[in-house]
Design a binder for these strands. Structure first.
Lengths: 119, 119
DNA sequence: GACATATATGAATACCTGCTCATATATTCA
DNA sequence: TGAATATATGAGCAGGTATTCATATATGTC
């Protein structure tokens, strides 16, 4: 039986390869996880979430605290809302945003520790 | 003393605002954290890290397991190396990659749990 | 040395993303 | 109702990113 003239000589399409593939994340899982990290992978959004970690705030206060225009912040809040990371409470003409998901604080803290360690 | 015709009437430039600003992350911290998440915010890289979570692998095996061309994988490995998330061990003409930072597994697991919960 | 193999890299391209500016919507107040 | 305020949103643009394809480098084999 001729072994195919394969290259680096490891997995080929053996049982081992199939076993490994089964242990990996599904496509849907990978996509969801990457999307979550994508949402956290922007400075403005990190600042917004960091701000909201201290409590609910209206849009103009968030804009002031993160140092961005209200328009830019509003656009980002829309994305964060769509990802269910924040929620709105509307009072009159104001919109108060808060974290909708406190696991995010954990991820943020872990990342913070991580970058501090390898500094 | 005329209160400025401010708008939503919250923080203004009071002591409170200064106090809050001090509690927020520094610009450098925000940038590092966002960069880390950016690195995790791509499906191919998530797959690569997930694969390496099972152990060291050579480039062509990684390419096979994540279902991408070796070139694409090599480009991504370069970025992951630059971010110190993976490291290489060269043996002959092969390059074996491994996680250089096992905290990453924790972040990946947390993200995984997170997306599974809100599914 | 000549050739095959494993990986790396540069250039080009197609796509995506975040901001600004202008404008819309909705609410409050006179 | 009309003006002011708080937020939301669409279009457009500038910059960034992931892939492919072609090619380079480096190692091993004959």
């Amino acid at each position: 039986m001729p072994t195919p003239a394969d290259s680096c000589g490891h997995l080929h399409d053996s049982r081992e390869l199939a076993r490994l593939k089964r242990a990996l994340m599904t496509g849907a899982e990978v996509a969801s996880i990457a999307d979550l990290f994508k949402m956290l992978g922007d400075g403005t959004r990190v600042r917004i979430l960091d701000t909201l970690a201290q409590g609910e705030r209206c849009v103009c206060d968030i804009a002031e605290l993160v140092g961005m225009s209200e328009s830019a912040v509003s656009h980002q809040l829309r994305l964060l809302r769509a990802s269910r990371l924040v929620r709105v409470r509307r009072v009159g003409r104001q919109a108060f945003y808060a974290l909708d998901d406190h696991h995010i604080i954990g991820l943020l803290h872990d990342a913070r520790r991580h970058v501090q360690e390898q500094a």
